[in-house]
């Protein structure tokens, strides 16, 4: 060993060749060899290439460095799946050049953000994150609303990646802002994985609200409401991105919504864009919110 090395460190060419070989072994086994295997190139059946608008949005996501604070992989860990949804699958990322999984989660993971909130939520949140979350440290991206997309540039990008597009699609971009594009991208992230459907067709909770009129529960419900619901449903539930909860129309159409139905909507969400809270708020908490909402309606 030492004898060989004596020769080696008098011969830089031999040394350099050996060093190259040594560096390449791990490279080949862990990087080049996997690349040749199909397991590194999976694609989910219903995964589609990005549309022109979505790709333009992804370019902006990259440009603004969103991935330095937001990851895009849900790990197969229990609480992580509870917080965000299905864990990430290898086949979701086939059109991602490059991957944007990130390495730091200063804000929440975005792997399942697509379809979680209505578009209007994202527009307002990107414009002023602290209007929604007082303690958020995210910068404001209001300037994206002022900037128009350049359709030719987006077309060049689509061509480079070989994604299919139509002339009309490119044409339509000239009226779009960067904000439109970013929201379109956010809304498609993670949507190739089907959400667990059973929850969405809201099953009505059979139990009666055990906390009707309970003063402590109403107090807690108000706190929970302000923390979780107010950003969309407004102060005292007067409405905003989400519908007003004081509004007779919303209540009246099919008769009053029962406490059980309200519970299910809060717990499981709706297809109209209400996110599910059942995994973040415990059962008593949801009943408390229902009790609180009932006090609003009596106004």
């Amino acid at each position: 060993m030492a004898g060989l090395h004596d020769k080696l460190h008098k011969n830089p060419i031999l040394f350099a060749i050996l060093a190259t070989v040594v560096v390449l072994i791990g490279t080949i086994v862990t990087m080049l060899y996997p690349m040749l295997r199909p397991e590194m190139h999976p694609k989910l059946e219903n995964l589609k290439p990005y549309t022109a608008l979505q790709l333009a949005g992804r370019d902006i996501y990259q440009r603004e460095g969103c991935f330095y604070c937001h990851t895009q992989t849900v790990r197969p860990l229990k609480t992580e799946v509870m917080r965000y949804g299905e864990y990430s699958k290898a086949g979701e990322f086939a059109y991602d050049h490059p991957f944007l999984w990130g390495s730091k989660r200063t804000g929440p993971d975005l792997a399942r953000i697509g379809g979680k909130y209505p578009d209007a939520w994202h527009y307002r949140h990107l414009e002023n994150p602290r209007a929604f979350f007082k303690e958020s440290n995210m910068p404001s991206y209001a300037f994206l609303k002022e900037r128009k997309l350049d359709p030719q540039e987006v077309e060049r990008h689509m061509k480079a990646l070989g994604f299919p597009y139509t002339k009309e699609e490119i044409e339509a971009l000239k009226d779009k802002t960067e904000m439109d594009a970013l929201v379109a991208y956010l809304q498609v992230i993670g949507t190739a994985v089907k959400k667990k459907e059973e929850a969405i067709e809201a099953k009505v909770m059979e139990e009666k609200n055990p906390l009707v009129g309970d003063k402590e529960a109403i107090k807690r419900g108000k706190e929970l409401f302000e923390k979780n619901c107010m950003v969309c449903h407004g102060d005292d539930g007067k409405g905003g991105i989400g519908p007003s909860l004081q509004d007779n129309v919303w209540l009246g159409k099919e008769g009053d919504i029962s406490d059980g139905k309200l519970f299910s909507i809060i717990s499981d969400g709706t297809q109209a864009g209400m996110p599910p809270f059942g995994k973040q708020i415990d059962k008593n908490g949801i009943w408390s919110i229902v009790s609180y909402i009932r006090t609003l309606q009596k106004k």
């Binding site: 690349m35 190139h41 990322f93 086939a94 490059p98 999984w101 990646l161």
Partner: peptide, 30 residues
Amino acid sequence: VLYIINNLSIPAGLLKSYHLFAGVNSANVQ
């Protein structure tokens, strides 16, 4: 070796390119 391989990309403009590798593979190379 490292710098050249990871920076292989598809140019899409004077100052824009896309990683030659995609998804899981892109992550592994990176």
